[in-house]
Amino acid sequence: MSLACLRCGAEKETLLHAIKDCLLAHAILACGGLDDRLISNDFVHCIGWLEAVMILLDKKAMEDFITFLWNSWNNMNNFIFRGKEEEARVIWERALTLSNDFGLHNINH
């Protein structure tokens, strides 16, 4: 079984690589305007990166970030299982729309 990233061909795919360091994940984070310290800094473990994100982002930005992670992971699954992948900007805009819709739903209910 290969441990290489199917998206970008990196030698070893880890959880941190899949949601932060993979070329498409990195591009999605950049589209969202995530602080460069969170995109470019090297983190050893995923939990360290997520803790840094929680420290730097306010509540609304953190909600958007979690929605981004879900959409990015979903896009990766679509690529692996269906051979279909979308551009970074499309993924980010879908995540933002979903987050805003969810916020409006919570206000109404």
Rank of each mutant, 00 (worst) to 15 (best):
W92A: 01
L23K: 06
C22F: 15
A18Y: 14
N71V: 02
R89S: 09
N74K: 14
G48S: 11
L56G: 10
A61N: 14
K60H: 13
F102P: 01
D42P: 01
M54I: 03
I19H: 05
V90P: 02
R89T: 06
S72Y: 02
D64M: 13
T67S: 05
G48W: 12
E85I: 12
V53K: 00
V90N: 08
A52C: 12
H109V: 11
L69W: 15
G32W: 13
L96F: 10
F81C: 04
V53W: 05
W49L: 04
L57S: 07
L56P: 00
I55V: 11
T14D: 06
I107F: 13
R37A: 08
F81G: 03
G83E: 04
D101A: 07
I47R: 06
N71G: 04
M76T: 07
F65N: 01
I55D: 12
N78M: 11
M54A: 13
N41C: 09
K12N: 10
I66E: 02
I28A: 08
G48P: 01
K12D: 04
E13W: 15
C31R: 05
L69P: 04
H105E: 05
V90R: 09
W70R: 03
N77K: 14
R82F: 13
W73M: 06
M76A: 02
L38N: 09
N108C: 07
E51S: 08
H105V: 11
K84M: 07
I47S: 06
E63P: 00
K12R: 10
G83I: 11
H109P: 01
E13Q: 12
K60F: 09
E13N: 10
L104F: 01
I55L: 08
L50P: 00
M76I: 05
C22L: 08
M54W: 12
W73Q: 04
D64F: 14
K84G: 00
L34Y: 14
L24N: 02
G33S: 05
L56A: 14
L16P: 04
L24D: 04
D35L: 09
K59V: 12
L104V: 12
I55Y: 14
L24C: 07
C31E: 11
D58T: 05
I47Y: 10
E87Y: 09
T67I: 03
G32V: 08
D58Q: 13
V44G: 00
I66K: 07
G33R: 06
L104P: 04
V44Q: 10
A95M: 05
G48C: 07
R82N: 10
G103C: 03
L24A: 00
N71Y: 15
M62Y: 14
L15Q: 13
M76F: 15
S40G: 06
N75H: 05
L104D: 06
W49D: 00
N74Y: 15
N71P: 01
W49F: 13
L38S: 07
A30F: 11
S72R: 06
D42C: 06
K84D: 08
N78C: 10
D21N: 08
L38R: 05
A88Q: 07
L57P: 00
